[in-house]
């Protein structure tokens, strides 16, 4: 190739590269703007309304029943909705908002939304990360929540995450906050409030009596019932000797059952398959309810005695692909809820 031809080729490659660089500046999206679609946050009201949190070009919003109606509330791309919870009568929806970039100085704003009038009020704010909300079925003015007091990495080989969890509540009537536990748990999730007595149910590590790092690694995540007047006398209500971690659950007191999420198998590429199971604490019987071989999560009891749950069809992929399903209490008639 002679000098002139090579010079022309170099110029051509230079021009093409400059065009691609220019396109890069025009079409690049920020991480916040890339978020789109359904998140893992949803709830079902006593009146059968399904509320979901969706991203629309990075903006988090709450949608009722269908996305076509548009969001009833929506926040700037810098903020996220961490959880939502319907009141027992289904007329109010509590939700918590915080910055997407979490830190130990993050502020969590808890809002109350009137489903009929769509009036939205800020109930309270705390300088901490509130990860979950749940109304007290016995008292419509009491809202329980899980609060993480720090956002850090306790090990140099892990990223920063919320830790030092405890159970708190907020009285909407007299506007007072109460801290119910002093556990400072490394992790705590799936907050449920008992409909019959003064206690809450949470999932956390069964690591109270561990003495060494080996014992800590060998411990399992289980479901605990915490009496609010004597939080130290918490008890395990999932299978206490079960050899599997439990991640998410739903308590069905009238059936003496819990429906929980656990690993059900492994795909050929090594990715875990998460399924829903039921455990009867009277008979100690465990039953596998789903066999979707995907990532089934977050079981919620609907007013029609159906279990609603999420399935991530792209679990362990770059972006999740959530779909809502429903099934009977015994795991029969699994159908996808179309949006």
């Amino acid at each position: 190739m002679n000098k002139k031809a090579f010079g022309l080729l170099t110029a051509l490659i230079g021009i093409v590269t400059i065009i691609f660089v220019g396109l890069g500046f025009v079409y690049e999206k920020s991480e916040n703007e890339k978020q789109n679609g359904l998140t893992a946050i949803f709830d079902v009201s006593a009146t059968g309304v399904i509320a979901t949190v969706r991203f629309e070009k990075g903006k988090a919003g709450i949608y009722l029943n269908t996305k076509d109606d548009g969001p009833i509330v929506q926040f700037p791309v810098e903020q996220k909705i961490l959880d939502i919870s319907f009141s027992n009568d289904g007329k109010r929806l509590a939700y918590v908002v915080s910055e997407k970039e979490s830190s130990s100085d993050s502020i969590s704003d808890v809002h109350l939304l009137d489903i009929d009038t769509k009036a939205d009020i800020l109930a309270f704010s705390v300088t901490a990360i509130i990860t979950e909300l749940a109304f007290d079925p016995k008292n419509p003015d009491k809202l329980f929540y899980l609060q993480a007091d720090v956002f850090t990495n306790y090990s140099p080989i892990t990223g920063k995450r919320p830790h030092d969890f405890d159970v708190h509540s907020y009285n909407l009537d007299n506007k007072t906050q109460t801290r119910h536990t002093d556990l400072k748990k490394y992790g705590m999730q799936s907050l449920h409030v008992s409909a019959t007595d003064e206690s809450v149910f949470v999932q956390m590590d069964d690591d109270e009596n561990v003495q060494s790092a080996d014992e800590l690694f060998a411990s399992y995540q289980r479901i605990f019932k915490i009496p609010l007047d004597m939080p130290d006398e918490k008890e395990i209500i999932s299978n206490p000797t079960g050899q599997q971690d439990i991640y998410d659950f739903l308590v069905l007191p009238e059936l003496d059952e819990i429906i929980y999420q656990a690993v059900g198998g492994t795909k050929s590429n090594g990715t875990y398959e998460y399924e829903l199971f039921s455990f009867n604490w009277e008979t100690n019987q465990t039953k596998q309810l789903t066999r979707l071989k995907e990532y089934a999560a977050k079981p919620i009891l609907g007013s029609n005695q159906k279990i609603y749950f999420l399935v991530d069809l792209n679990f362990a992929g770059r972006t999740p692909d959530y779909t809502i399903y429903q099934m009977d209490l015994d795991g029969e008639n699994i159908v996808e809820i179309l949006w």
């Binding site: 691609f20 079409y27 999206k29 770059r318």
Partner: peptide, 21 residues
């Protein structure tokens, strides 16, 4: 280089300008 850069830009929304250069 051009193909993977364009795929990252138009499918994933990421412009890896330094890598392209």
């Amino acid at each position: 280089a051009y193909s993977v850069y364009a795929s990252q830009l138009f499918i994933m929304g990421d412009a890896h300008i330094l890598w392209l250069i």
